[in-house]
Amino acid sequence: MIIRHSKEEDLPRMMEIYAYARDFMAEHGNPNQWGPTNWPPEGLIRADIAAGNSYVCVCKDRVAGAFFFRQGRDIEPTYRTIEEGGWLDDGPYGVVHRLAGDGSVKGIGSACLEWAFGQCGHLRIDTHGDNRVMQNLLKKSGFVYCGIIHVEEDCYPRLAYEKLRTEGGRRR
Rank of each mutant, 00 (worst) to 15 (best):
W87N: 07
N136A: 15
Y161S: 01
E8Y: 06
E9D: 11
V96Y: 05
V144W: 02
M25Q: 12
W87E: 05
V58T: 04
D130P: 13
L11C: 08
I82E: 02
R62K: 13
V105G: 00
I17T: 04
F69V: 13
Y156W: 15
M1A: 04
V96I: 12
Y20Q: 09
T166R: 07
D74K: 09
G168C: 08
G94S: 06
S6Y: 11
K140P: 10
P92N: 04
G72P: 02
P40H: 00
P36Q: 03
L113A: 05
L44F: 03
V144C: 03
G91Q: 08
S110F: 11
S104H: 09
P77G: 13
N131T: 12
A100C: 05
F68V: 11
G109R: 01
G101W: 07
L164M: 15
A26F: 05
K7L: 14
G52M: 09
H128E: 02
T166S: 03
D23H: 15
I125H: 08
S104D: 12
T127I: 11
Y20M: 07
N32Y: 04
G91A: 11
I3K: 10
H128L: 14
G107H: 12
A64T: 15
S54Y: 04
G43M: 06
I82A: 14
G101S: 15
I49E: 00
D154F: 05
H97N: 15
T81P: 02
E16V: 12
V96E: 08
L113V: 12
Y145C: 02
R46G: 05
Q119F: 09
R70S: 15
D130K: 07
C57S: 07
C120T: 09
A160E: 03
T81S: 13
W39I: 06
L138V: 13
R22C: 07
Y145T: 07
R22P: 04
A100E: 04
A64Q: 12
T78S: 09
M15Q: 14
I149E: 10
I125Q: 08
I148T: 15
T37Y: 03
L123Y: 01
G35Y: 12
G85S: 09
V151W: 04
I125R: 05
G101M: 06
A21L: 01
I45E: 01
A111T: 14
P12C: 05
Y93V: 01
K60V: 08
G109H: 01
V56D: 03
S6N: 06
L138P: 13
A116T: 03
N30W: 08
N131V: 10
K163W: 08
V133W: 07
N30M: 14
G86M: 14
Y145I: 00
C112W: 03
H150P: 01
D48G: 03
Q33D: 10
P77V: 03
G103S: 05
E167G: 13
R171H: 12
I49F: 01
W87H: 12
R171T: 14
R4I: 13
E8I: 14
L11W: 11
W34V: 00
G118Y: 09
D74N: 15
M15I: 07
I108V: 15
N131S: 10
